[in-house]
């Protein structure tokens, strides 16, 4: 069978490994051509043999449960050491960074290891979390929502952060001042609409969100909704073309927040 090599993927994204694989599953808009190419030999087999079909379904489920596994909550740690330690442990394990009040940023080394000395900060609140690129999802977010003193949260390029997640951030409304959602492939204007709860927000980064249908208009509406917040947003080339406002936007962006 003269099928192209690419078509031999079992479940398309799984062999790619790493965060790209994760994103493959969560992608909402699949480029048509790519999709086509992969749907050949294995699809043919799957259509005809139950075993192949079952195997592919199994692999798909496996992929999903891997994400769930990463996002389970550390009930034991939480009970023993309190919410701050549990959240920090969760974030570090995922490969993100945390900052306890009055301390330096803590992040795992290149091989994902981190020292456990932060277990002594039981009574010190966590004030900043950088979970850029982590596989954090709706369930895993529970760990962070317990941080009532959290001021800055970065969820940049998190493949599993979606509108459902944003709808829960209101629980951090009391403290959150900075939020970055840049590059989250699943966040759309529908989720951004929930951020109106975050009245203390001073800085919000919503740039590079592929799922937002109209970045320019969305940014204007978000700014209206959060009048006290500096919204870093859309790449204006892809959004609306507005003369004066475009300029004011550019100056706003150059102000270091």
């Amino acid at each position: 069978m003269a099928a192209p090599k690419a078509s031999l993927y079992l479940v398309a994204p799984i062999w790619k490994g790493g965060p790209r694989g994760i994103r493959g599953l969560s992608r909402t808009v699949a480029p048509e051509g790519n999709q086509r190419k992969r749907r050949t030999v294995l699809q043919f087999l799957a259509d005809r043999f139950y075993d192949v079909q079952a195997l592919r379904e199994y692999l798909l489920r496996k992929q999903v449960s891997k994400v769930h596994q990463k996002n389970r909550s550390f009930t034991y740690v939480k009970e023993q050491y309190g919410p701050y330690i549990a959240a920090a442990y969760f974030v570090l394990k995922q490969g993100g960074a945390v900052k306890f009040q009055g301390q330096e940023w803590m992040r795992p080394n290149g091989r994902g290891r981190f020292s456990l000395e932060f277990f002594k900060f039981q009574a010190v609140p966590v004030e900043a979390v950088d979970a850029s690129g982590c596989a954090i999802n709706y369930q895993g977010l529970d760990n962070l929502l317990a941080l009532k003193e959290l001021q800055s949260l970065s969820l940049q390029r998190c493949p599993h952060v979606d509108d459902w997640c944003l709808s829960r951030l209101y629980q951090l409304a009391g403290s959150l001042q900075e939020l970055s959602l840049a590059g989250c492939p699943q966040v759309s204007e529908r989720g951004l609409a929930c951020l109106h709860h975050l009245q203390n927000l001073r800085r919000l980064d919503i740039s590079d969100l592929p799922a937002v249908s109209n970045p320019g208009l969305t940014q204007i509406l978000v700014e209206e909704m959060l009048p006290n917040c500096n919204v870093l947003g859309a790449d204006w080339a892809q959004g609306l073309k507005l003369g004066p406002e475009e300029q004011s936007q550019d100056t706003a962006r150059s102000i270091p927040a």
Binding site: V11, L25, S26, R27, T28, V29, A30, Q35, R38, R39, Q43, A46, Q53, R56, E57, L60, R61, V64, Y138, D163, W164, L166, S167, R190, G191, A193, C194
Partner: peptide, 23 residues
């Protein structure tokens, strides 16, 4: 609905976009 792409996942088909507005 939140986990619709797990409940209703079909191998080879693109994920569903439910367009949920959590307002």
């Amino acid at each position: 609905l939140r986990n619709i792409n797990e409940y209703l996942a079909v191998v080879d088909d693109p994920p569903l976009d439910l367009q949920f507005n959590p307002s």
